[in-house]
């Protein structure tokens, strides 16, 4: 679904991604961990076609949608309009399928997106991404600034879409516990380079990963 090979992305003279190679298979859920400034959002934006790579190849095997870091809604538009614009690429204009998935959004349909709570906004960002009928979804920090209950709720939806529709997911997370719960494989990025990759079960036992992302305690 996603095949990234030898990807280099730079901002001016600063290199944000340095010869990165990474794959997400069909129907797979893969986590991407890394400290602040590692280049995770840069990768997300490159996959979404917003940033052009300096070199290397990016192959996307189906329709890709991005839930960007910090929601990035259209604050002046209603929730319904935000969702409808999510269908820009797919041609889907009627958000009723998303309302079925996330009934809370139907209640919020007429509200301005800018006045919603963080959790509600993340739900709109989720629904907006689903409006493009994606086959692969890149989620940049699902849990950022959200209460645990809200995060768990959205994570459950992700897992369900993955199970029922085979939606492939690249989950960028600071919360490694959540990432390891949801995903089968994970990559760890630091300063634009991959430092580790592997099955989540093994990574959780890796003392370096545990120290950096699980607060030292291996669960």
């Amino acid at each position: 679904m996603i095949e990234v090979q030898d990807l280099v992305v730079s901002y001016g003279t600063a290199t944000a991604l340095d010869h990165l190679t990474l794959t997400v298979g069909e129907g797979e859920m893969v986590a991407l961990l890394g400290p602040n400034g590692a280049g995770k959002s840069t990768l997300a934006n490159t996959l979404a076609g917003i940033i052009a790579p300096a070199s290397g190849t990016v192959r996307i095997g189906g329709r890709l949608a991005l839930i960007p870091e910090g929601r990035q809604l259209f604050p002046d538009l209603s929730v319904a309009d935000n969702l409808a614009l999510g269908g820009w690429r797919s041609g889907l204009r009627d958000p009723s399928s998303v309302y079925e998935l996330l009934p809370r959004l139907a209640e919020l349909a007429g509200r301005r997106a800018g006045v919603l709570s963080g959790g509600e906004q993340q739900m709109v960002a989720f629904g907006r991404a689903m409006m493009s009928r994606p086959e692969v979804l890149v989620v940049d920090e699902l849990s950022l600034g959200l209460a645990p209950g809200v995060t768990a709720d959205l994570a459950a939806h992700l897992a369900e879409l993955n199970r029922s529709q085979g939606l492939a997911v690249l989950l960028i997370e600071q919360n490694a516990r959540l990432a390891f719960e949801l995903c089968s494989r994970a990559y760890v990025l630091e300063s634009g380079r991959l430092v580790t990759e592997g099955a989540c079960a093994e990574l959780a036992d890796d003392p370096r990963v545990a120290a950096a992302y699980l607060g030292g305690a291996v669960t």
């Binding site: 979404a48 917003i50 991005l66 960007p68 990035q72 809604l73 259209f74 604050p75 002046d76 538009l77 614009l85 999510g86 820009w88 690429r89 907006r128 493009s132």
Partner: peptide, 12 residues
Amino acid sequence: ASNPYAARVVGI
């Protein structure tokens, strides 16, 4: 006008 970055995210 509201959020040019988000506009690009949805493909506009």
